[in-house]
């Protein structure tokens, strides 16, 4: 008897509720643009947020409403953007691709350690112990937090424990920027080819005791650059990218340490003629010089 009552009560209850919801679904149906689904299908489904929207779906909604252009999505291929633009009958629009750039070149072959860090293999953890083992306080700790956090396999650590960004794969999602305890990564438009790969705020040759490729604030690059393209601020060259049209490989040529570089689309990082050739292939010994 009890089981019958239970069955009847619960069965009746669910049936009633199901009927109610069914009716409500019919009566209270809200029309949604079917194009949103189609456009979302065409997007890369990375949900990375590089476009400034929380995910691909809100971006698709904004696209259909015409608030943004497909070019805002830097992850999808040019053909993909073109396909969306054709489907919606709008201009594809171009958003310049941004990539993550590292402001340090001090691998274990050129930068000295003042202490041997032996704890958890994580830059975040290492930076808590007196800023990590690097002699240069601003330098890359080389433990690969950025490599681990990158969802697109765009960052790999090279043989000298310095992260190398694959500009093809980088989507400028900003994860590496957030995780680096030394704030060495920043998102830069791909066309910014002139780049200062150092964050050491000290001046003079003392810098070179800690790192062979550090910037000594000699100012030669600023002198060779046209106009106000490069100024020395806080003992570091600062490139005014608002004059990005004036960029050329000239200012890097007299840099004695190669800390200001030209990032070539095909050949990668190019150092100036007068920069010292780095021949050491192993790690520098830890301890006082």
């Amino acid at each position: 008897m009890t089981i019958l009552i239970a069955l009847a009560t619960l069965g009746g209850l669910t049936l009633l509720l199901a009927l109610m919801l069914l009716l409500a679904n019919k009566k209270l149906y809200v029309y949604e643009d079917p194009r949103i689904d189609t456009v979302e299908e065409m997007l890369p489904h990375a949900n990375c947020g590089a476009c400034g929207f929380p995910g691909c779906r809100p971006f698709a909604e904004a696209l259909v409403e015409g608030k943004v252009l497909p070019g805002k999505c830097t992850v999808s291929s040019p053909e993909g953007r073109e396909a969306i633009a054709t489907y919606l009958g709008v201009d594809a629009g171009a958003e310049e691709k941004k990539v993550a750039r590292l402001a340090c070149a001090g691998g274990i072959n050129v930068a000295r350690n003042k202490a041997g860090y032996q704890g958890l293999k994580s830059c975040q953890a290492a930076s808590l112990v007196s800023g990590g083992g690097k002699a240069c306080f601003w330098g890359c700790l080389g433990l690969g937090d950025c490599e681990a956090v990158c969802d697109f396999d765009a960052i790999t650590m090279n043989e000298f424990s310095i992260p190398v960004v694959d500009e093809e794969k980088c989507t400028a999602c900003g994860d590496c920027v957030a995780i680096c305890p030394k704030d060495l990564f920043s998102l830069q438009p791909e066309s910014n080819r002139l780049w200062v790969a150092c964050k050491n705020l000290e001046a003079g040759d003392g810098v070179l005791e800690d790192c062979e490729v550090g910037c000594t604030a000699c100012g030669k690059c600023a002198m060779d650059a046209p106009g106000d393209l490069i100024v020395i601020r806080n003992n570091l060259p600062v490139i005014n990218y608002k004059y990005a049209g004036l960029q050329s490989p000239d200012p890097i040529q007299r840099c004695p340490t190669g800390s200001i570089v030209w990032i070539d689309r095909d050949k990668g990082i190019i150092k100036g003629r007068e920069s010292k050739k780095i021949i050491r292939q192993g790690a520098i010994k830890t301890g006082a010089s």
């Binding site: 009890t2 009552i5 239970a6 009847a8 009560t9 619960l10 209850l13 669910t14 509720l17 199901a18 109610m20 919801l21 409500a24 679904n25 209270l28 809200v30």
Partner: peptide, 27 residues
Amino acid sequence: VNAPFLQLISYIVVIASTVQLVEMFIR
């Protein structure tokens, strides 16, 4: 109906579907 042992399961069912309904209504 003298079936208090159904309390837990029926609460869940009823609350979930009522809220669903209210959500549709608000939408």
